[in-house]
């Protein structure tokens, strides 16, 4: 079978869930070959083997992590020249999309971004125009390069014991240009990652700046917390938690919108959620057009009462 390259998304060898999803998808197209950039490949190996990587290509050249994306794209180009993959799968985050974009130009290959599904023959599914349309597409020229969104597949184990192959890449001076000079890590919240969470509770302008009830309800459900842009722009919640066109696109099992009107740009980020619930004091709010269940009421009353009842039922 032909090889399918999967770029591993990890922090110091801790493999992210999206990589398990990519490996699962890659198996529909061929034999997954994981490309691991940076330190910690031995720590990553069990997770990569669990989801069916047949081989792990390790790239440890320090320049790959010192500079921004350009060297990674060069490295992948060199790996692709050797492996001649049938497709290249990359996580659909800011860095992944940039690597993919550069690779498309280098390999003269078609690029599809933000796939929510990939099937045999590398036919992708994307959700466009604020989730109002579903588009199926495929690459018709070169090696299909596809960036895949979180939750595009349920990770399925397929135990392998892949070998690690060190691969030496040469990085051009031209690629060593933009560099990170300072990095302030975000404080961990202990809540699930927004794009990966099964349940999200989001707050908007209707919170009046107090996210306490939103966070408490989220915690009772084991959910992630999201925010509308109005809440972010008001400085009530950090931008990293914004849901919508210029924030994160999420597709959880359950999305709860509290004090959010449901503007098109917000919908763009959450419309494909499986179940949608809203709490809003205005019965005319457009968010109610989307909901499976809606409560017309004051979130400052409804959320705390609901939180209390959830905690009671769970204990």
């Amino acid at each position: 079978m032909s090889n399918v390259l999967v770029l591993v998304d990890h922090t110091d060898g801790q493999v992210r869930k999206t990589t398990a999803e990519l490996l699962t998808i890659a198996r529909r197209l061929g034999d997954p070959v994981a490309v691991f950039v940076g330190d910690g490949v031995q720590d990553a190996l069990p997770a990569l083997g669990q989801y069916g990587a047949t081989k792990v290509v390790a790239l440890t050249n320090p320049e790959l992590t010192q500079f921004l994306v350009a060297p990674k794209a060069e490295a992948l180009q060199q790996v692709a020249a050797k492996v001649e993959p049938a497709a290249i799968l990359i996580s659909s985050n800011a860095e992944g999309k940039e690597i993919a974009a550069r690779l498309a130009v280098k390999l003269e290959s078609g690029l599809i971004t933000d796939a929510v599904d990939v099937q045999e023959g590398a036919v992708t599914t994307q959700s466009v125009f604020a989730g109002n349309y579903t588009v199926q597409a495929k690459v018709t020229h070169g090696t299909p390069i596809i960036t895949v969104k979180p939750n595009a597949a349920t990770p399925e184990a397929a135990e392998t014991s892949p070998e690690v192959e060190e691969f030496d890449v040469t990085i051009s001076d031209a690629a060593k240009t933009a560099r990170i000079t300072d990095s302030k890590p975000r404080e961990a919240t202990g809540r699930p990652e927004l794009t990966e969470a099964a349940i999200i509770v989001s707050g908007g302008r209707g919170t009046g700046g107090d996210f306490g009830p939103v966070e408490a309800f989220a915690d009772s459900l084991g959910a992630a917390v999201g925010a509308s842009r109005a809440a972010v722009d008001s400085g009530w919640y950090p931008h990293a938690y914004q849901v919508g066109q210029t924030g994160k696109t999420v597709s959880p099992q359950l999305y709860v919108a509290a004090g959010i009107s449901g503007a098109i740009q917000h919908r763009a980020g959450m419309q494909t959620s499986k179940t949608i619930v809203a709490v809003n004091k205005d019965e005319e709010a457009p968010i109610f057009e989307l909901v499976d269940f809606g409560v017309v009421g004051d979130l400052h009353k409804v959320l705390p009462a609901a939180t209390e009842e959830v905690i009671k039922r769970k204990s």
Partner: peptide, 28 residues
């Protein structure tokens, strides 16, 4: 010269109307 091709476009089916209740303060 496009290197990708859209095979199919489907409009999202309208969401079926959900249940909407009004919080009426009438006890738990």
């Amino acid at each position: 010269a496009a290197w990708t091709e859209v095979v199919e476009v489907t409009a999202r089916p309208p969401r079926t109307a959900g249940t909407i209740v009004t919080d009426d303060d009438s006890g738990p």
